[in-house]
Computed example of a mutant assay.
Amino acid sequence: MIKNSQKGLSLVELLISLFIIYIVVLPFINMIHISSQNMRSSRDQIELSFFSKKCIEMMKSMDYAEALQNYNGQIREMDGYFVEFSLQPCNNNGNIFAIIINDCYVDMVYPCGRLKRLNYEDGQNIFVEDVPKKMPVEINALKYYEHKNINIIMSNNTISDVSLYLNSSNAHLINILSCSVTQYVGHYYKDYLLFDTTIKIYDQLSNEQPLYTSNNIIKLEI
């Protein structure tokens, strides 16, 4: 009977010892697991950061019209990820309403306002609407070389300051109606615009939360 009692006691001691070891070792196992997860997450974030920079460099290689038309508000599949692009004119452009006139397009750069185009045989009429009151308007036509007339009609009669930048060959082709204008022929004008760019990277389109988000201010050529 004494021997059986001693065997039972040693089994209890063994169980107690295993329990103590479990209590002591478990936190270390959890720490190793959490550390491994953090290392994996950090590695993934670094990889996504480099991929985000790759997307930014791709955007910088375009002019602003191409970037807005092909990427703004769109989701593109790239390198196994789904990338959402958002570009907004940056406040660093100044509190102005800018109109860009090139050979290929007439466009505006400001969160509000509208342009309406009416083509005719020798050119087109551009109606500028909903520009905030007393906001300066800058019209950059330095890169316009087509020999067609462009008439710009400002519908807001509260606009007090319109600056028109021309080259030597188009000074007689672009007319501003309904308001006074200051013309600069061959005058230096910045050839870029700043955009507040947000890039969101997803692994699946069904996910609501992105894997990575980056915000950058980038310079895009006009």
Rank of each mutant, 00 (worst) to 15 (best):
2 I>Y: 13
7 K>Y: 15
11 L>W: 10
16 I>T: 15
17 S>H: 08
18 L>E: 05
20 I>E: 07
25 V>G: 01
26 L>T: 15
34 I>P: 00
38 N>A: 04
42 S>H: 06
42 S>V: 02
44 D>E: 15
50 F>W: 10
51 F>W: 13
55 C>V: 13
57 E>P: 00
59 M>S: 03
60 K>M: 07
62 M>I: 00
64 Y>W: 07
65 A>M: 06
65 A>Q: 08
70 N>F: 15
72 N>Q: 03
76 R>P: 00
80 G>S: 10
82 F>E: 11
85 F>K: 03
85 F>G: 04
93 N>L: 05
100 I>F: 09
108 M>E: 05
114 R>I: 06
119 N>T: 07
121 E>T: 08
123 G>H: 08
125 N>E: 13
128 V>L: 07
130 D>F: 11
131 V>S: 02
132 P>W: 08
138 E>A: 04
140 N>S: 05
146 E>D: 11
147 H>K: 12
148 K>C: 02
156 N>C: 00
161 D>G: 00
163 S>T: 06
167 N>S: 03
168 S>D: 09
171 A>N: 07
172 H>P: 00
172 H>D: 14
173 L>R: 01
174 I>C: 01
175 N>K: 10
177 L>A: 05
180 S>I: 03
184 Y>R: 10
187 H>E: 15
194 L>K: 11
195 F>K: 00
199 I>S: 06
201 I>V: 14
205 L>M: 12
207 N>F: 13
207 N>H: 14
209 Q>A: 09
213 T>D: 04
215 N>A: 02
215 N>P: 00
217 I>E: 14
218 I>S: 03
218 I>D: 08
221 E>C: 00
222 I>V: 14
222 I>W: 06
